[in-house]
Nucleic acid binder design. Structure first.
Lengths: 151, 151
DNA sequence: GCGATCAGTTGCATTTTGCTACCAACTGGA
DNA sequence: TCCAGTTGGTAGCAAAATGCAACTGATCGC
């Protein structure tokens, strides 16, 4: 299936801006918490319900949207009747977004005395800080970048 | 002002998770579009209103929240009565989050024939892809990382 | 069969949005 | 000076989204 086929009927907040499209697709508190938990091993309806504490009807709605939008996929569980929700490649690709949010939260949403969970790599050490870079490898910031609108 | 002072009265969805705290602070469609526009030069109430198309009462509310949460700061405009909203350091630090969302959108929210705006560095070329890495510099993915909860 | 668990759906009250109108302060021009 | 236009909001109300609790079925262990 082509990317676009799924989104023909979407009416985007700002169709030409990838940030706005991303927000239209996954820019919802619960959706991103569901994705976070899926990345951390949650698979079943009640996994997500217990971890997030979300209301069951809302969870049901969000899982449906995530299936429609190609972020999650359904799989019959190997034993038993239970269905599992697993991340698609597009869903797994949200990793950078979740990491960016995690790192911002670590820097700006905790006081000196407060502890928080940590995302670690295979070495057991925390990840390096995400650093946007331009095409030549030097650090890019708000001040060194511009949005160029399409023709 | 200490980080924590501003957030003493917040009741977090999941206090120990930086992702959840970030979502509690800025995990809102309109808030992130406002931040996007602030990064692209928007400063006044009506700049934001025109660019996003948001309802004025909601914009008013979101700007107030962003001030409270230390993402935006108010400055009296040099000439005239107009106030300007400018990003704080914490706000500017959301750059990586916005870039991550932009890149995900470019990869997964556009069909082959559709064009979109592009974020370019000083060279005029698009930024490189954000790549989460572990402490040794090798690529980190969903499969090679784990969340370790605090003690 | 019987209770427990899982995966939802339904109904209803509360909250949040979004629209439209309104208002007050200032600005520029005739 | 007067008047229109712009800026930065607030107020009121209808529509949509959310959250809670109860209910439904299907299955699993015993």
């Amino acid at each position: 299936m082509a990317h676009a086929a799924r989104f023909v009927d979407m009416d985007w907040t700002d169709a030409s801006c990838p940030v706005a499209r991303t927000l239209d697709l996954v820019g919802d508190r619960w959706i991103l918490l569901i994705v976070r938990d899926a990345m951390d091993g949650a698979r079943s309806f009640s996994d997500f319900q217990h971890r997030t504490g979300i209301a069951r009807n809302i969870l049901s709605d969000r899982l449906r949207r995530l299936l429609e939008r190609g972020v999650l996929d359904r799989q019959p569980a190997p034993s038993g009747r239970r269905q599992l929700y697993v991340l698609t490649d597009a869903g797994r690709d949200l990793f950078a977004v979740i990491v960016a949010m995690r790192q911002w939260g670590e820097r700006h949403a905790f006081g000196p005395g407060e502890s928080h969970s940590v995302l670690v790599g295979e070495s057991g050490l925390p990840l390096a800080e995400l650093r946007p870079t331009d095409s030549r490898g030097s650090t890019a910031t708000v001040d060194t970048t511009t949005v160029v609108r399409e023709d």
